[in-house]
Computed example of a mutant assay.
Amino acid sequence: MGNILIIEDERKVLDVIKAYLEKEGYNVWGATTGIEGLELFKKIDFDLILLDLMLPDIDGEEICKKIRLISKVHIFMLTAKAELGDKIEGLNIGADEYLVKPLSPRELTARVNALFRRINKDKSSLLSFDGGNLKIYKDERVVKVKEVEVNLTPNEFDILYTLASNKGKVFTREMLIDSVFHSDFDGFDRTVDVHIKNIRKKIEKDSRNPKYIITVTRVGYKFSGDN
């Protein structure tokens, strides 16, 4: 489900949190010092760090600053510091959440689950191809080529998303009409060809030798791109 790093110097607390999260299906690593935590962070691609602020070797705030210089990983700070000023400082230096101890393991697990639901939703709404050179954001209805947004009409976006979200599947013109236009369509099937031509001009490096939207002779079109 996701990789989580717990940096917590109290071994019993670490073990309890680790057990709760592993029961939920997460892959969990633990470190009892800041140095150990940073070493693990360099080796593994984590989705979330649960960071205690009061560590024996390095302050948690300093660890957060170091990580924020190189990563956008989610960070939950765990601390006994309950003052509003401490919370504001923690959020300002890069924490996503600031949780005050004592904290119920069940509540912490619920917060972690909520975060991963958001993460998974964000991932499911983004299609990325060719090492990120082509990105299609479903919810925002945005398409970017090499991080530059391209302007697609609503129909062009729907055709592209239909093809891209079914990579490798061959669509006839009639199938695209049914999927995109539904009962509102009163044109002819070659209208799809015009839309495809326009999409290619906007997303392909060479629209005459397309990389993404491939013509399947006498049948229709399919999407071909490396995830």
Rank of each mutant, 00 (worst) to 15 (best):
R111H: 13
K43S: 12
E107H: 14
L163P: 01
G37A: 07
S71H: 08
T32Y: 10
G225K: 04
R68G: 10
A164S: 14
R218P: 02
V148Q: 13
D15N: 14
A82C: 06
D52W: 00
I17E: 02
A110W: 15
K146W: 07
I214H: 01
I4A: 03
L103I: 09
F171C: 06
D184Y: 09
I70D: 12
R141G: 02
V145S: 09
F181S: 07
D96E: 10
F76I: 04
S104W: 06
K135I: 03
D57A: 15
G25P: 11
V143C: 04
K202L: 05
V13N: 03
V13S: 08
K205L: 14
L38T: 09
D139N: 15
V142R: 10
R111G: 06
D96A: 06
L108V: 07
I136C: 03
V194M: 12
E83L: 13
D45F: 12
I177Q: 08
N209T: 12
K65S: 15
C64P: 10
L108G: 04
M77R: 00
L126S: 06
E147M: 11
L48N: 05
V73P: 05
Y20Q: 08
G168E: 07
E10S: 07
I214R: 00
M77N: 01
K169A: 06
G85S: 15
T172S: 12
R208H: 12
K72C: 06
K43M: 09
L152K: 01
R218M: 14
N151S: 12
I177H: 05
V150D: 10
I58F: 08
S165T: 08
F188M: 13
V142E: 11
L134M: 13
D57N: 11
K81T: 04
V216I: 10
L50P: 00
E62L: 12
G131S: 15
E149R: 12
N3V: 03
N198Q: 14
D226V: 15
L163G: 05
T32H: 11
V170H: 04
Y212L: 04
V28I: 15
Y212S: 05
V216L: 10
R218I: 10
Y212R: 04
P210W: 01
A31K: 00
E147H: 10
R208N: 12
V145W: 03
G187S: 08
K23A: 14
I35H: 06
F129M: 02
D178G: 05
E147D: 14
G132H: 09
L103N: 01
F76V: 02
L91Y: 06
N27S: 11
E8R: 02
N155W: 00
Y26D: 05
C64N: 09
M54Y: 08
S183E: 13
I196D: 00
N133Y: 07
K169E: 15
G60R: 00
K201P: 01
R106E: 11
T109A: 09
